[in-house]
Computed example of a mutant assay.
Amino acid sequence: MTENGPKADIRTDWDLEEIKAIYYKPVLELIVEAANVHKQYQATGEVQVCTLLSVKTGGCPEDCAYCPQAARYHTEVEVHKLLSQEQVLASARRAKEGGSTRFCMGAAWREVRDNRDFDKVLDMVQGVNELGLEVCCTLGMVNEYQAERLKEAGLYAYNHNLDTSEENYSNIITTRTYGDRLDTLDNVRKAGISVCSGGIIGLGETDEDRIGMLYTLSTLEQHPESVPVNALVPVKGTPLENQPRVSVWEMVRMIATARILMPKTMVRLSAGREQMDVTEQALCFLAGANSIFTGEKLLTTPNPDFDQDKAMFALLGLSPRKSFKEETQPEVV
Rank of each mutant, 00 (worst) to 15 (best):
C67M: 10
L133R: 02
A71E: 14
T51H: 09
V248Q: 14
P239W: 11
F324D: 02
G5Y: 07
D307L: 06
K190F: 02
S100P: 08
L150G: 10
D13R: 08
M266R: 10
L240G: 13
D209C: 05
M1Q: 05
G237F: 14
S165M: 11
L89N: 01
E17D: 12
V55Q: 01
V135M: 05
V195M: 10
D180C: 11
V121T: 02
L261I: 12
D186A: 15
A282D: 09
F293D: 02
E166Q: 15
G212S: 06
P61M: 10
T257Y: 08
R116T: 07
V233D: 03
P26C: 11
R176G: 10
L318C: 04
D277T: 10
V188N: 13
C196T: 06
R110P: 00
E167T: 13
G272P: 12
T300S: 14
G198V: 06
E274A: 09
V267T: 15
M276R: 15
T75D: 12
E46W: 03
G295S: 04
V267M: 14
R113L: 14
A153P: 00
L162C: 02
D309K: 03
V121G: 00
R321D: 00
I200E: 07
R72P: 03
V121I: 14
Q87E: 15
S247A: 14
T101C: 10
S100W: 00
V49N: 02
P224I: 15
D180P: 14
D277G: 13
V278P: 07
M262H: 04
D307R: 07
T328H: 09
A34N: 11
S100Y: 00
D123P: 00
Y23H: 07
T216N: 06
H38K: 12
V47C: 05
E144Y: 03
V125Y: 00
Y73M: 07
Q69T: 02
T2I: 11
D180Q: 14
N159H: 09
N115K: 01
A90V: 04
K7M: 09
D277L: 13
L53Q: 02
R94D: 05
N230L: 13
G58S: 08
V233G: 04
S170G: 11
C136V: 06
E205S: 04
L52R: 03
P263G: 15
S54R: 08
